[in-house]
């Protein structure tokens, strides 16, 4: 692998954590929104007929799942063979496989995080 290819791959390796970072951002957002809404007594506000928290969590979850699936979709391409390197490059394949699996696992975690919003009273 050339030095340039290696450098590009190094920066892309950080995207290994992409799915989990989306999970973290989603988690912090829904937790913060719930904390602020409950602390400021805004839980009875309604948006488009839904409670403020379920509505916000639903939107945030859709965005997070969309971002993670985008990661999944481009995952097969971004770590594919780079210019001037052999197609059977094992390091790239390893990164790609782990990234895709992590994105999938993150989607499950995002879904699980969102689930309580629709069955538990927000500020009980």
């Amino acid at each position: 692998m050339t030095a340039v290819a290696e450098q590009r791959l190094t920066s892309k390796a950080f995207l290994l954590f992409g799915g989990l970072l989306i999970w973290a951002a989603h988690f912090m957002l829904v937790y913060s929104v719930n904390a602020v809404v409950c602390a400021r007594g805004l839980q009875d506000l309604r948006v488009l007929g839904a409670g403020l928290i379920p509505f916000t969590v639903a939107i945030a979850t859709l965005v997070a799942l969309a971002a993670a699936s985008r990661l999944l979709w481009v995952g097969s391409g971004w770590l594919g063979p780079l210019r001037g390197e052999p197609h059977d490059d094992r390091a790239s394949a390893f990164l790609r496989q782990v990234s895709i699996a992590l994105a999938l696992l993150s989607m499950v975690a995002i879904f699980l995080t969102a689930l309580p919003s629709f069955v538990v009273v927000p500020c009980g």
């Binding site: 988690f27 829904v30 937790y31 719930n34 904390a35 409950c38 928290i53 696992l105 499950v108 975690a109 699980l112 995080t113 689930l115 309580p116 919003s117 538990v120 009273v121 927000p122 500020c123 009980g124």
Partner: peptide, 18 residues
């Protein structure tokens, strides 16, 4: 803490078990 906040952490606990 609000019940739903606890629910978020309960869900994360289940995720890490995977």
């Amino acid at each position: 803490l609000p019940q739903l906040s606890l629910g978020f952490f309960s869900a994360a606990s289940m995720s890490v078990a995977i």
